[in-house]
């Protein structure tokens, strides 16, 4: 729901609106020649967070830094790096924040425990409900 992309954009954009006029990085808006590599790059880009945008992936953003990041992703995929290695490279620099795909860790385990807990809780509710009946 794009409820109204409003004031923040305006209020914040005014002071930092300064943008360079340099050409984009070569692979910011250019796809890789090999469709299989491009598909890999695209899938990875959809899960990386644009650093200066308000919650967009670098696959959905016109910000310059998003273009620079796409360039990094595409050139590294082209050089044969695996998507997960590139994700790690970025996470070494920006932490978990840069990746929309939470990794299982001390801070994020509840996210992964949640579905299990819900399955168990849901099962218990149903079981409790129907056992009494039978």
């Amino acid at each position: 729901m794009r409820l109204l992309l409003a004031f923040l954009a305006l209020a914040l954009a005014a002071p930092v609106i300064a943008q360079d006029s340099m050409p984009d990085a070569p692979y910011a808006y250019k796809q890789l020649e090999d469709p299989a590599q491009e598909a890999k790059a695209k899938a990875l880009m959809e899960t990386l967070r644009c650093l200066t945008c308000q919650g967009q992936s670098i696959a959905d953003s016109d910000a310059k830094i998003a273009g620079d990041m796409r360039h990094q992703v595409r050139t590294r995929i082209k050089a044969g790096e695996s998507p997960e290695a590139i994700r790690r490279w970025l996470m070494e620099r920006y932490g978990d924040y840069i990746s929309y795909k939470p990794e299982l860790s001390e801070t994020t385990w509840p996210l992964f425990a949640l579905p299990l807990v819900l399955v168990l809780a849901g099962g218990l509710v149903l079981f409790g409900r129907f056992r009494r009946r039978a």
Binding site: P26, I65, D68, R93, Y94
Partner: peptide
């Protein structure tokens, strides 16, 4: 192309 900027973790 922001390569070093990204390399040192600057945003």
């Amino acid at each position: 192309i922001g390569a070093v900027q990204l390399g040192i973790g600057s945003s």
